[in-house]
Design a protein around this nucleic acid. Sequence first.
RNA 1: GCGCCCGUAGCUCAGCUGGAUAGAGCGUGAGCUUGCGGAGCUCAAGGCCGGAGGUUCAAGUCCUCCCGGGCGCACCA
Length: 554
Amino acid sequence: MIERKIQELIKKAIVEQQQAGRWPHFEVPAIAIESPQLAEHGDYACNISFPLSGLLKISPMEIGTVLLSGIRAMVQENKMISQVELAAPGFLNFSLAPAWLNGAVDTINQKGAEFGKSNAGRQKKVQVEFVSANPTGPIHVGNGRGAFLGDTLANILYWVGYRVEREYYINDLGKQIEILGESVTRRYLQNQGIHVPYPDYCYQGEYINEIAKSLHLKNYTLKNAQKINEIKNKIKQTVLKKMVREIQNLLTNKLRVKYDVWFSEQSLYDSGQFERTLNKLKEKDLTYEKEDALWFKSSGFGDDKDRVLIKNDGAPTYFASDIAHHEVNFLTNSKKINILGADHHGDVPRLQAAMSALGYQGKLDIILVQFVRLVEGGFEVKMSKRGGSFITLEELVDEIGLDVARFFFLMYSTATHMDFDLSLARKKSEKNPVFYVQYAHARICSIMKKLKIKKGQAKPKSNETELNHPAELALAKELIKFPDLLLKISQNYEIHRLPFYAVEIAKKFHNFYTQCRVIDQGEVNQARLELIQATQVVLKNVLSLMGVTAPKKM
RNA sequence: GCGCCCGUAGCUCAGCUGGAUAGAGCGUGAGCUUGCGGAGCUCAAGGCCGGAGGUUCAAGUCCUCCCGGGCGCACCA
């Protein structure tokens, strides 16, 4: 909003020069569209002089000088911008007017819990799918990254005006589930004293044995142990349900991760959706049979080779299910964002190919999240369900706390391969940035409390209604960026900017706090009170988007 | 071999569609009390941004090659 205003000013100044015949005619928007950026020295810095310099064959400083006088004349009646200056290499720096900032702070307080919301999404329906880990074992630390990112992204999308559906896709079909059933069955039989081997392909984790121990299958005794398949199927269904329930319980109750839909892969077949999607591809002549299998011509849509839909044993592939699954999603959503682990990057081209084939081109965005490497005292802690040695997400959260975990996982770019040192995290936990941010919030609450105690005998308010101290202005300028930040994140999915922003606000606040007093000699500074109220509003909103608590005291 | 991601301060990471003297936290060193919470504030030290070319007025950012690390390359899910 501020950036657009500045762009307008610059464009006007350039056109002015053109109309006066001093500069040749060129397409202004193409250049003026270069958006102003935040700078240390001014509030907004613009580098427009540089591209113009090449075009006009005049030095950047000269161009800056010409534009400066034009813009200054216009700024006279502008309330938002108080000052424009030309800096050394040819930068134009725009400063925000304190009086205008005052009004902006006021607006934040009026909007309160709504501050930051917009209707940019125009109530379009978007689905965010995340985690979707196979229900073959506990949720591990790597899944946690996706869980918190997905939850927060969905929150942000909702705030900028989308109708958001959060989905967990349950792979309750196929080989992995068979192996899960078999693993538990074998342990179960072993626990009954029946000698059965435990092959390498079975899940090795101790949790398998724990589940086996908790099973009570009264109808099956040692005598009819030969009915292994019957037992296995029963156990498989029981274990699957149990696993899904545990995952649901962990995510929603313990990790504060919300879901709207738990979508079963099996349901695609029960509902006939799988057949419908498959027929659609067949009708478009995009499939063919080869070596007793049914193939999809994905190479015609950018994939490097064709892919199997139905295996030669008659069973559908995971890929085939996933196509039908996505089609269901697009029945009710105009857009889908899928958060995947980086180990699935190879699957992206084929999935996009299928979406293009079905007419959903450009509607699926995939966010690849790189792996988390757990390190303990310099050694990597392997996280593999198959291998059995891993730290579950639950264990991690129990140890460092949910607020710390959420903040920590959110503050890294999804492209970063993060190294997470457990021993370091434990030591550092008190110095964690999340506490820094929460402390700022608690400090504000503390001041508020102090004011409320004296409610009966209200403190006299000073007649200072305008911000002028540098620390006040810096804080106010930070606060007003919030709505634009959310819009940006909703477009580029750079979720890590949110925790960084939170830290920035906390920093500006702590700095303000040590330099400026809200309650001074029994008198309340009106402008500062409004400023810290606004700070509280923004901190609360930011933290709630991240699913982190905003404590009143610590 | 092919494809995707990463390489920035001692450590963990930012650096937004190329723009001013490359930033933060932790760690290290030096300071900060008449007053709203010291889980805070201020300052300092610490960098040939993996390497070499190229494009540009301008490269940590874009292109090519090389080195190093992670992950994929199934009729598994």
